[in-house]
Design a protein around this nucleic acid. Structure first.
Length: 935
DNA sequence: AAGACAGCGTAC
DNA sequence: GACGTACGCTGTCTTA
């Protein structure tokens, strides 16, 4: 018999985790299925990792356990299991049975105890054990034979791992839990003893409860906060400590009528499994089983082929996936065509003309659409029916290919027809490539990347490989596999058709299949379908156009600035070396920390996540305040080094040699809230706050005969807050067009508007922004440099004066907790898997996001609507003007200089009128020869 | 040499 | 532990 490890799966722990961590998923009958899928996914991945291992999945049984008898309050605090979770247990157990996996539920004990018992007896028989769990209490079981693995986070814990993670070995974990207790499991612990104290005791005395109670006096001298009074506290609650010890101890001697040798997966019942999957609507697994030749006995799938429907752009998945649906053809390169002959091309052209929906994709020489040259095109007309049309492969021995101009001309009437629906994955890229090839693509109706993003922005990345794996269970051919990587990576034109064609055609095929799956899901939530069709899809050509317009920068000016910064940096560096008494790398936080805190002995203000002394700006500022010289120099050096490396050095390098301009990429499927992001280069974080930084902005210029016009929404997020909260005070302030920070200051500090001091206004501004971000009194105090009590008083006073805001925030939190997501005004959703997490840090983080996302996201929606509106208005307005940048609440346009004043008012009006809120939207616009002046 | 991560800093 | 959303730089460590 092999000595493959025994795998023990803590089913109950995973079920809870999957339920809380994953966005809710239901089948078409409304039955929740997300947790079942999550646990099964986890089991699949375990089986894949340990194909030859014996295995058991262990669940808690119903009813009380011995711990309830031991301690009346045991788990009394735990809320009852949510119904949506309870109803998933039975189907999950059924699936596990059908998979042929041994499943154990033992009454009177918990899953932990069963696992503990099996683990110890297996280890005693020298068979290694892997316990798959998300529960850290299990760390007490770890020894030389027993390892924990968390299959959701892919982390393992062995003996050194436990020591590293907890600071104590596995043998002290029970004592640790007994001392500090556990809120969730309602293990009482010793009152007043938390993580830090418990650890201090165990490490300080090198032993557990018995050692501690035998040496109580020694506790007094340990280096623990409050050590002086600790012995009394411990003595008083000795009983509690030992009771807790018993509660926290996982049993390892449960009487089980299970033979270890019996814990082997069997073949299971595939037919039953198929029926279950069909019922649960786990489509990709249904396909997988059917491909393997399984037929359901319970519910035979009727393979009626759907007749093509005139109105049906979406293939067979216009309705939710059901067992009645015919399985999709297998994803396989065998059926893809490579088009080299005019006759074949004509045949495909006919297919494209007939198709209700054309799926297309371009292959090029670069990931940068503004540098990319077209190499080929691929198309799909239905799942499995795809082709690749090579146009410019140029390796040695490449076959003769169709004429590029001819093919493009053949395609033009199709691609430029706004009524001919098209589908792509990240179509903005293809639109830009084709625009540069002289084709003005119109009628992009769907984009699988954006469909996935709108459905759930954060559950996954939205690149095609990730989506294919997630939604189709298919591993695509990776670009790396055919092009190689690193310095010797080929461009697409150098790749042999034998490899290029299957890759390219697969892209189109997968895009179509993804659309079929995702579109069906979107239809189930009309608000999301509208976000896609009314905001995201119309935005694609707008962004493409802004990117192609590009921004003009004065490279000479940046170059001069760079030289100047270089000289100043050298001087600052010399000064720093003199103060430090040695040379070091100022750009290395590690070396700087060594100098500041070890060599010079300056006080450590705060530490980084990894426990090193922080050298962040706020720390240096505080040290500078205490009149240390070196931190002052470092602060100046940091500021200038940042400007030089990120902006004055880098921006000129990013000027496109063909256009002489900088073309950023806007990403439409990245942020959690619906904002855009910008990269290569990021033009959404060009400095503005300091004079030195603004010199960078001054290098963004208008071409000869034009000026820049910058139009931004004034206080858009606070206006949205006023609207969402319907708070009378805040509504009033905006309706009277007051300076909102001044108005807030007047309320919070109890003065008239005229009496508000600069300082009071500054504080009010911090409060206003803090609110949008869900900031605490602690954070506000830090920001304002006041005592926490004082900050809390401001916040209390604010909520007193603006009760609607408080109520709104409570509402948002509750809504997030009950439905698992929050929404923008236009129905965009953000799922918050951590909103009910038991870990308070995670939960509170999710709560802050819940409060921020509707405001930030609604602002993003409004701006997107504005961009679409401006884009459609401008060409008909008679103005010579184009949008060149978007920075969240601001649009920057290049306008012919004699039209700037005439354009200003209608532009602001178009932007202000895209949404009707309970308060006016105000847009302010400024003009200048450069971006700084335009503010 | 390339990639991952940490620490930091820029924007809204 | 403590303020939301991004991108990208340099240094450092790991892996090939």
């Amino acid at each position: 018999m092999s000595n493959a490890p025994l795998i023990l799966v803590d089913g109950s722990s995973y079920l809870y985790r999957a339920f809380h961590a994953l966005p809710p998923l239901t089948n078409s009958k409304g039955l929740p299925t997300g947790a079942v899928k999550g646990v099964l996914n986890m089991l699949r991945s375990l089986r894949k990792s340990y194909p030859d291992s014996p295995l058991a999945v262990v669940f808690d049984a119903k009813g009380p356990t011995f711990r309830d008898e031991m301690f009346a309050d045991y788990k009394a605090q735990r809320p009852p299991m949510p119904d949506d979770l309870r109803v998933q247990i039975e189907p999950l157990h059924a699936c596990i049975h059908a998979l042929g996996l041994p499943l154990l539920c033992v009454e009177g004990v918990e899953a932990d105890d069963v696992i503990g018992t099996l683990a110890r007896s297996s280890a005693a028989a020298s068979r290694p054990v892997i316990i798959s769990t998300g529960d850290k209490d299990m760390a007490q079981l770890v020894d030389g034979h027993i390892t924990l693995v968390n299959t959701m986070t892919n982390t393992t814990l062995d003996v050194p791992g436990v020591a590293e993670k907890f600071g104590i070995g596995p043998e002290l974990i029970i004592d640790y839990l007994a001392l500090m207790g556990d809120k969730v499991d309602n293990i009482p612990g010793v009152p007043g003893v938390g993580e830090k104290t418990a650890l201090g005791l165990l490490q300080g005395l090198g032993g557990g409860l018995d050692v501690i109670y035998a040496n109580l006096e020694a506790v007094r001298t340990l280096d623990i906060r409050g050590a002086k009074k600790l012995p009394e506290k411990l003595a008083e609650h000795k009983d509690m400590a030992y009771l807790s010890y018993q509660l926290a101890t996982i049993k390892t001697d449960v009487a089980l009528d299970v033979e270890l040798d019996a814990l082997h997966p069997s073949d299971g019942d595939s037919a039953a499994l198929l029926a279950l999957y069909q019922d649960l609507e786990f489509k990709s697994w249904v396909d997988e089983l059917q491909r393997a030749g399984v037929a359901a006995t319970a519910k035979p799938a009727t393979a009626t082929h759907a007749t093509p429907n005139q109105d049906d752009l979406f293939g067979s998945s216009d309705s939710p996936a059901t067992a009645e649906e015919p399985a999709q053809p297998e994803i396989s390169a065998a059926q893809y065509e490579t088009i080299l002959e005019p006759a074949d091309w004509q045949r495909w052209l006919g297919k494209l003309q007939q198709a209700e929906l054309i799926t297309f994709d371009t292959e090029t020489t670069s990931v940068d659409a503004m540098q990319a040259e077209l190499v080929g095109l691929s198309f799909a007309v239905q799942a499995g029916e795809a082709c690749y049309v090579p146009l410019a492969h140029s390796y040695m021995g490449a076959p003769q290919q169709l004429d590029r101009t001819q093919v493009l001309n053949d395609l033009r009437p199709l691609l430029e027809d706004p009524h001919k629906a098209k589908l792509a994955q990240n179509g903005k890229y293809d639109i830009n490539v084709l625009a540069r090839a002289g084709i003005n693509v119109q009628g992009l109706a769907f984009d699988s990347m954006l469909e996935s993003y709108v459905l759930n922005a954060t559950a996954t990345r939205h690149d095609m490989d990730s989506l294919a794996l997630k939604y189709l269970g298919h591993s695509t051919i990776r670009f790396e596999d055919i092009a190689g990587k690193g310095a010797k990576q080929l461009t697409f034109d150098q790749i042999a058709l034998e490899q290029a064609a299957p890759y390219a055609a697969e892209d189109a095929d997968i895009t179509l299949r993804l659309h079929q799956a995702l579109h069906a899901q979107l239809q189930a939530t009309p608000s999301l379908a509208r976000v896609l069709s009314e905001i995201e899809m119309p935005l694609v050509p707008v962004l493409a156009s802004i990117e192609r317009n590009g921004a003009l920068v004065d490279a000479k000016r940046l170059g001069e600035h760079s030289l100047e910064l270089g000289q100043k940096l050298e001087a600052l560096e010399r000064e720093a070396f003199a103060l430090a008494g040695e040379e070091f790398n100022l750009n290395s936080p590690k070396q700087l920390g060594e100098i500041l805190f070890t060599k010079l002995g300056l006080p450590v203000i705060s530490k980084t996540a990894k426990g090193q002394p922080s050298t962040a700006e706020s720390v240096l500022a505080e040290l500078a305040e205490q009149d240390y010289e070196l931190p002052k120099v470092i602060m100046q050096q940091r500021t200038l080094a940042k400007l030089k490396s990120t902006y004055t050095d880098r921006l000129p390098e990013q000027i496109n040699p063909h256009t002489g301009r900088i073309h950023t990429s806007y990403h439409q499927a990245v942020t959690a809230t619906g904002r855009l992001s910008s990269s290569d280069p990021n033009l959404q974080n060009i400095p503005i706050r300091t004079a030195e930084g603004r010199r960078i902005r001054q290098a963004f210029v208008a071409p000869q005969g034009y000026r820049l016009l910058a139009a931004d929404y004034s206080q858009i997020e606070l206006r949205i807050m006023a609207h969402l909260a319907q708070d009378p005070g805040l509504l009033d302030a905006f309706r009277h067009d007051r300076d909102v920070h001044r108005a807030t200051a007047a309320e919070v500090f109890g003065v008239t508007l005229d009496e508000v001091s600069t300082d009071q206004r500054r504080s009010a501004k911090a409060i206003n922004f803090g609110l949008i971000y869900g900031m605490s009194a602690f954070g506000l105090a830090k920001q304002l440099g006041v005592e926490r009590k004082e900050a809390q008083a401001y916040i209390d006073r604010y909520f007193e004066r603006y009760p609607g805001v408080l109520a709104y925030m409570e509402r948002t939190r509750e809504q997030a907790a009950s439905q698992g997501y929050v929404e923008t005004l236009f129905g965009r959703r953000l799922y918050l898997p951590d909103i009910n997490a038991r870990n308070p840090a995670l939960r509170k983080g999710a709560e802050r996001t819940a409060i921020n996302a509707p405001m930030q996201g609604t602002a993003a929606d409004i701006m997107k609507k504005a961009m679409i509106a401006v884009h459609h208005w401008l060409p008909n307005s008679g103005f010579d003007a184009r949008v060149i940048l978007q920075v969240h609440d601001e649009l920057v346009l290049e306008v012919r200089e004699d039209q700037v004043e005439a354009l200003r008012a209608p532009l602001c009006e178009v932007m202000a009128n895209v949404a009707e809120l309970a308060v006016p939207l105000v847009v302010e616009a400024g003009a200048g020869d450069n971006w700084d002046e335009a503010h």
